[in-house]
Design a protein around this nucleic acid. Structure first.
Lengths: 343, 343
DNA sequence: ATGAAAGCGCTAACAG
DNA sequence: CTGTTAGCGCTTTCAT
């Protein structure tokens, strides 16, 4: 097995007139190496441009120095944002980040079932992906620490997670509209059988329902619609919701993407926003700022950052207990909400 | 060195009553294994839930099965899009993708200098990052194949790349405005000393200049401005450009992000788009669609996908020559361009 | 404080 | 067709 020969630890040892063991000790910063020896070794390392072979290090230490992150990339922009947070907070760590994209049910299963039992990663991060019942077991038995970002499966108390208080978010969006005087408030969200097992839309819906209840407003199923998470789908749904007589005077959407779809539908129907219909989104991605969309801001990047930090912490102290960190939301009032016309 | 013991190849061998070598042959699909033996081995693998240790495989084969991708993530949305393309096209390959984010000059140097000489990756992808002179050498001597996405350093003919014809893009944006009757057309782009060494803005500017020249319009430096690539900066710059008497009647921006900044500035100045000022962007990211921004579409995801494919190909056939693939742009007319008021 | 040696788990000659 | 063997490059006892 011959190979393009970069300098190995042996070469360094030879040049510094020490044994490979000593070079290793120097590289890993072990104490108990004479000042002078260390100097010689360092000089040799430097002269040779030696850099240790990571495969060999991994094999002999049993640690991979990689963190795996599983993301359903193309489902929604918020996932990329969270991932960015992860990437940034891992940049200065000693871990490599390997990405596993999940688009199909098949990939999804592979990631949940196999990744946790392999020793390819020292830790795993799952973004906006909740394990199904069948997958829970694999996570529980995982040989590596796992932390979930934007997923909150009740069956998995032993797994750390960072979540956003979606019920509170949905509630405050709705509360805002109620406060403005709206009585017919619709909801536009994700289909419940969402392929990725997320509960965020459902939780926001629950918050919405609670706000309605608190205001003494009976829920109107005909003002609610759910579908695949996309602007186009939201557009189609909103066309239906807003195209009827007795249409809602306001819509709370489960995401900015969907709110934008609704906004396009409104424009298409000749409805002015916010005069004829108020719109509130969720996430506060850039497009919301540009459009002046009233929305519920959630700390997207921050959730990724915190998830990574939790994992790092767990890697440092394997004995630590599971943590459930919930991040707050904040209502950002902009130009798509106003009192209803008749009010 | 004791460790959490997953089954090893030895366990499988024992159970199947064969030698580890044979198990290895089966795992790697080598031919020359008796039907019956293979069956027994497979059964043992399956029964034990054996999965090979990647560190060991890497060490003994000398291949890492990883592809490294270097990205300046937070500089611009287009980078994420390209990265998505890479991720998707690598999902079904046998390679792991490890991400190296670049935010600081320091990280940048590390990536250019060290990554290519290490054996941690079998191939390297650089997105929207051009090597400086000092870094070129390291790339030329790289022990692993490299492909550049959205960077086109002339000094590096030996390195494959996929680029977009930015000159043509800048030209067609400008040509469109000229065709509409504009004579005073400004340009809003990135500062030339861009920390990442990109030439895209400069190339678009050149295309812009050529279109002006072809139309017999003398360039007006006072109608051009460059700065850091961000909406806020573009906003500030556009305020200056459009706030003057004798302001341009149209602006070509080096990106949608910057066009949006200009659009905000126009609105702030009480200028209507497109009646008072026409705007054309570049990229065609989602926000352009929503806003109805006329723009030059470039195949963002596709560039990532192609880059990955080129690299994979190179990995398959190490002898292949460097390729320079240029992707086309396309002008998308929407609602932010119109003939100038006076025309 | 340092050297020698025994692996880590797998692959790839080389025999047979 | 299959077993045996010698590493891959590094880390880590165990001696000294």
């Amino acid at each position: 097995v011959k190979r393009s020969s970069q300098p190995t630890i042996r070469d360094v040892a030879l040049r510094a007139h020490v044994s490979p063991g000593t070079v290793s000790r120097v590289m890993r910063g072990h104490r108990g190496v004479a000042q002078e020896t260390r100097r010689r070794v360092l000089a040799a390392i430097c002269a040779l441009g030696y850099t240790p072979d990571s495969a060999a290090t991994r094999l002999s230490t049993g640690r991979s120095l990689v963190i795996g992150v599983v993301v359903p990339l193309s489902t929604r922009p918020s996932v990329s944002e969270r991932l960015n947070g992860v990437v940034k907070s891992l940049a200065e760590s000693s871990y490599d980040l390997v990405i596993h994209n999940v688009e199909t049910a098949d990939q999804r299963t592979r990631c949940f079932q196999n990744l946790p039992r392999r020793r390819d990663a020292d830790g795993l991060l799952f973004i906006s992906l909740a394990p199904r019942d069948a997958e829970v077991q694999a996570l529980v038995e995982s040989r590596v620490p796992v932390v979930l970002i934007d997923a909150d499966p009740p069956a998995l108390v032993a797994v750390s997670r960072v979540v956003v208080d979606d019920k509170a978010g949905g509630h405050s969006a709705t509360r805002h509209l109620v406060g403005l005087g709206h009585r017919r408030i619709g909801f536009l969200g994700d289909a419940v059988d969402d392929a990725f097992g997320l509960t965020s839309s459902r939780d926001r819906y629950r918050g919405y329902l609670r706000a309605l209840r608190e205001a003494g407003i009976p829920p109107r199923p005909q003002d609610c619609a759910t579908g695949e998470h996309s602007r186009a789908e939201a557009h189609a749904l909103a066309l239906r919701l807003l195209g009827r007589a007795g249409r809602p005077t306001a819509l709370v959407a489960a995401s900015d993407t969907q709110a934008v779809g609704a906004w396009e539908a409104a424009r298409e129907l000749g409805l002015r926003v916010p005069e004829d219909v108020s719109l509130v989104g969720y996430d506060d991605i850039e497009i919301a700022q540009v459009l002046g969309l009233t929305t519920v801001r959630q700390p997207l990047q921050h959730s990724g950052r915190r998830g990574a930090e939790l994992l790092l912490q767990r890697l440092r102290d394997p004995g630590a207990a599971a943590v459930r960190e919930v991040l707050p939301t904040e209502l950002v009032e902009r130009r798509t909400t106003a009192p209803p016309q008749g009010a």
